[in-house]
Design a protein around this nucleic acid. Structure first.
Lengths: 215, 215, 215, 215
DNA sequence: GATGAATGAGGGTTCATTCAT
DNA sequence: AATGAATGAACCCTCATTCAT
C-alpha cells in the first residue's frame, strides 16, 4: 500500500515514515534538531514545539509522549541514512577495490554528523530505551556487517578470498575502520576528518585485511 | 605530567583526588551511584545527597554546581580504573604473547560495567562537557594506545615485529578488539561476554595483526 | 415517548428532553457515562466525544460549554428516574400498607446506582452550579415529599391518620428511610443492601410513624 | 500531651495533628480554604500555595502529593469538629431532655459550614478516596450513633426507655434530625437555619421517638 | 562545617475551546 | 451539520540552588 510500485518485493517498512511536507514531519524535524543538540533528557517539549513552530498541544496530537516522539525520531532518521549506506556491492568487483569502496563509504557515514548524533543518543539512552537500541543495532551495524559478509562469502566461493568465517571477517574489517579517529570524533574532539585521513585509515584496513584473507 | 618519578617534589595532580574516607569522597561515592544509574540529566542533587547520606547544603559546600560534581566524579572514576589498565608490559615478552595478554585485558576492561557506564556518560554529554570528553580521551584511550605503541616500537627495534608506523598499528590492534561484540554490549543488548568469546575475538585480532606485522 | 401523544395539550417541558434516537441524545448518553464515572471536573470533553462516538466539534454544536452539557445531562437523567418514582399512590390503600410500599420504593431508588451518582455529583457541584442543585431538589426530593404529603393529608381527612402537619410528617417519614445504611452507601462503603435489610429499615420507619400518627 | 486529663485511656490520635502555628498548619489552612471553595479536583496546588503564602515547592516539602494534602486536610478538620460534638451525655439526664440537647447539638453541627464542606467533599470523592470515606464515617457519624446508642441502652436498663435495639433506635433518631432542611442546606439552597427552625425539627424528632420508645 | 526549609522556574502532560474544511 | 487539527493556558510535580540556623 505504501509502495505498490515494486512488485514482488514489498517488505513494507514497519513505522510508515511520514510524508516530508506534513505536520508530523515538521514536528520530527524540530525534534531532530533539539534532541541532537540537547539529548533526550535535556530536550524539552516546549523547545521542540518552538523549534517546530507548533504549539505544545499539537505535539501531543501526534505523539503520545516525549518517549514516543523520541522513538519516532530515531526510527525515521535511522531509516534515512541507513538507506544511503548500502546499495548492494557488485559481486564482480575485485575484493580489494570493493573493500576500498565500502570502507570509504562506511567511514564517511559513521562519522557524519547525523550518524554521530544518533549514535550518541542511542548509546546514552540504551538503558532507558532498550528496544530502541535493539532496532538501531539491527537496522544499522548488523545490516552493514551482513552486507559485507555476504560479499566476502561470495568472493571466497569464487576463490578470490580465503576466509573461513565470513561473518567474523566482516566484523574485523568493520572494526578496523573505527580507529581512534572515530573515537575522537564521537567525543566531539575533532571535526569531520579530511579525505586524506579517511584514505589513510581505509588503506591500512584493507592492507591488513588482504594480507590475511587474500587468496 | 603524570610522571611521579622525580623524587622529593610533590607537584600535586591537577584535580587532587580526595582521600577515600573524607566527606568529599563520600559525596563522590553517592554521586557515582546515582549518575551511573540515572545519567547526568536524570540524576538529581536530592537523590545524590540522600545516597551519600549528607544534606543537600553540604553538597554545595563541596561542589559549586551539579556540573562541577559531575566533572569531579568523572575525573575520579576515570583515574581509578585507568590506573588498573596498564602496568607496563614487559618488553621481553614475545610480541604474540604480549598482544594476547594486553588484548584480553583491554577487552575485559572496555566491557566492564564501570567502563561502560563511564563511556556512555561521556559520549552522551560530550557536547555539553567538551573538556570532560577531552580529559577522558587523554586519560583513557590515548594512554592505552600510547602504551601499546611504545611496546610495538621496542619490539620493532628488536626485530621482533615489522612495523613502519607503531602508533597506527597500535590503533589498529585496539580497533580489532572492538568488534560488534563491543557494540552490542555498549547498547546494552548483551551482558558480559564469556571467557571463550573474549578469547575468540582476541585470537582473531592477534592473528590478523601478526600476519601483517610479524617479523 | 415522554407523552407527545396527548392531543390538544402543549405544556412543553422547560428543557425539552431530546428524542431518544437523535444526535443530542447520543451525546448525552456518552456524557452520562463519563460524568458518572469521572465526576464533573474529572470528565473530559474528549472522552465524552469518544464515548458518544462524535467529534469534539459536534459536542460544541449542541452544547455551548462543558457546564452546559453537564446541566443538560443532570436535567435529563433526573427527569428520567424521578418519573419512575411516583406513579400516584392509590388513596384507597390502607396507610400502613401504602407506607410500606412507598418506603421500599424510595429506599431502593435512593440507593440505586444512578441516583447515587446523581446525588454525589449534584452535592459535589452545588456550589459551582446552584441552579442545578435547585432544580434537582425541586424535581427530586421535593416532589417525593409532595406526593407523600398529599397522600397523608387525604388519609387524615378520611380519619385513617392523625396528622396535624402532613408536610412535616412526610419529611419525617422520608428521613426515617435514610438511616446510616444510606450514609454508608453514599460513601461507597457498602454495595446495594439486601432485600431483608431494606425491609428491616422500612418496617422500623413505618412502626415509628404509625405509633405517632396512627389514627 | 494531647489529652493527659483522662488517665488510663490514652487512645492516641493516629495522624499527629500539627501544631497550630507551624508551616504545616499554615499550609493546611490555605488548603482548607481552597478545597472548601473549589473541591478536590477544582483546587489547584498553585492556588493553595498562594492562599497559604508559601511557594509551590514548599507544599511538596510537606505533602507528597495533592492527594496526600487532601487527606491530611480531611483528617485534621474532621478530628477538629468531631471532638466538639460529643462530650459524653450525663446518664442521669432524663431521656427526653437528653435527646433535645443532643438533637440540637447534632443539628447545629451537621449544618455548620465546615461540616457541610467536609461532607460534600467526602461524598464527592468517595470513589477516588475510599479510605478517606471510611475514616470519615468511622470518626464522624459512626461515633455519634455509638454515643447515642450507649446512652439509650443505659436508659433502657434503668427502665426509662423501652428499646429492644438501641443501635437501630439511635440511627432512627439521627435520621429524624436530617429532614429536608438538611438536604436543602447540603445543596446550598438555604443558609444556616434559624434557632426556631432547628427547635421545630428537633421537637418533632423527640416527639416521634418518645412516642415509640418512651417507657 | 553542616543542615534542610524555602524557593520559583521549568518539566511533561491534559484540557476546553475554536475554526477552516 | 459534522469534523478533527490546532491552540495555549493550566495542570501537578521536580529541580538546582540559596541561606538562616
Amino acid at each position: 500500500m505504501t509502495s505498490p510500485a515494486s512488485p514482488g518485493i514489498g517488505h513494507a517498512p514497519a513505522p510508515p515514515i511520514p510524508a516530508p511536507g506534513c505536520k508530523e514531519s515538521q514536528i520530527l524535524n524540530g525534534a531532530a534538531e533539539v534532541f541532537a543538540r540537547d539529548g533526550y533528557e535535556g530536550a524539552s517539549m516546549s523547545r521542540i514545539a518552538m523549534q517546530a513552530s507548533v504549539s505544545k498541544g499539537t505535539l501531543y496530537n501526534y505523539f503520545a509522549s516525549k518517549a514516543d516522539l523520541f522513538a519516532a525520531y530515531v526510527h525515521r532518521d535511522c531509516a534515512r541514512w541507513i538507506a544511503l549506506m548500502f546499495e548492494d556491492l557488485d559481486p564482480a568487483t575485485p575484493p580489494e577495490e570493493a573493500l576500498h569502496q565500502v570502507g570509504r563509504r562506511m567511514f564517511a557515514m559513521l562519522l557524519s554528523e547525523p550518524a554521530l548524533v544518533m549514535y550518541r543518543m542511542v548509546v546514552a539512552e540504551a538503558q532507558k530505551f532498550p528496544e530502541l537500541a535493539q532496532s538501531f543495532y539491527r537496522e544499522g551495524p548488523a545490516r552493514a556487517v551482513g552486507h559485507l559478509s555476504r560479499f566476502i562469502r561470495r568472493a571466497a566461493a569464487g576463490g578470490l578470498l580465503s576466509v573461513a568465517d565470513p561473518d567474523f571477517a566482516a566484523e574485523q574489517f568493520f572494526a578496523l575502520i573505527q580507529t581512534q579517529l572515530s573515537m575522537r570524533r564521537r567525543l566531539h574532539l575533532i571535526g569531520m576528518p579530511s579525505e586524506a585521513e579517511i584514505q589513510h585509515v581505509v588503506d591500512g584496513a584493507v592492507r591488513l585485511f588482504m594480507k590475511s584473507y587474500g587468496a
